[in-house]
Amino acid sequence: MRSALATLGTAFADGKANRASFVFQIVLMAVNDIAWIVFWGLFFHRVGTANGWTFHDVIVMFSLLTVVAGIGLGLFANCRRIGRMVADSSIDEVLVLPVRPLGQLLCRRVEPTNLGDLVFGVILFLAAADPTPERLLLWTACVLLGVCVMVAFLVWVGSFTFFVGGRGEHADLGFNALLLLASYPLDFFGGPVRVLLFTIVPAAFITGVPVSLMRHFAPGQFALIVAAAAILIALAWSTFHLGLRRYSSGSLWMR
């Protein structure tokens, strides 16, 4: 744990070494997020409410998503690169260290771009989503659970590379699908897509269910997110470590 924190600190220093580009990337990401808020503003201006969702709900949704992505993809940036790192055997670097590999791997890269999301999301929540103390507490809990869901999901799909080879493309697809689907109101999706969002692409636990919790707290729903996070973490941990046993490092060309 201590060494993971030390690594994170080092990765952060490495990420912001180029200060101008660091600040610039943070600003750009915030611009991107603002573009989306503008879209939803225009949409709800036109439509009023749709399937029970209002502009205010979307604000809450975006504050959750951007902060989850900011922490997950910003501070633990390697979570979306596990597949690639297995393919090009850069995980060897971690395997020779006297520390647990998964945690170390996740802490080794900080992505400034996504820290922009983090800043944006926190400001958005504080400025526009009624940050009463209770709501702030619930929001924080949802963010932390969301980070677990996102990071665990990405580690899980990335670990497929141990078994099926390739250059980690399926992990990229999983990543894009998760982020895309988490950025739309859950209740706009019906039928099979909705099932998908609670299972294979667990975007519902990052934004959909938390937004509903922020409207009216329901212990059952909260327990659902906790369970989803726990299952995904177990799945990610075991898939990664099973994969490590089959790991063939740099020898992929022999296949």
């Binding site: 060494s3 030390a6 690594t7 080092t10 220093a13 490495d14 990420g15 070494a17 180029n18 006297p98």
Partner: peptide, 17 residues
Amino acid sequence: WFQLTPRRTYALLASMY
């Protein structure tokens, strides 16, 4: 670490070991 000084890496490694 590419962007940092070796001393920084040494500090990290020392804490790991």
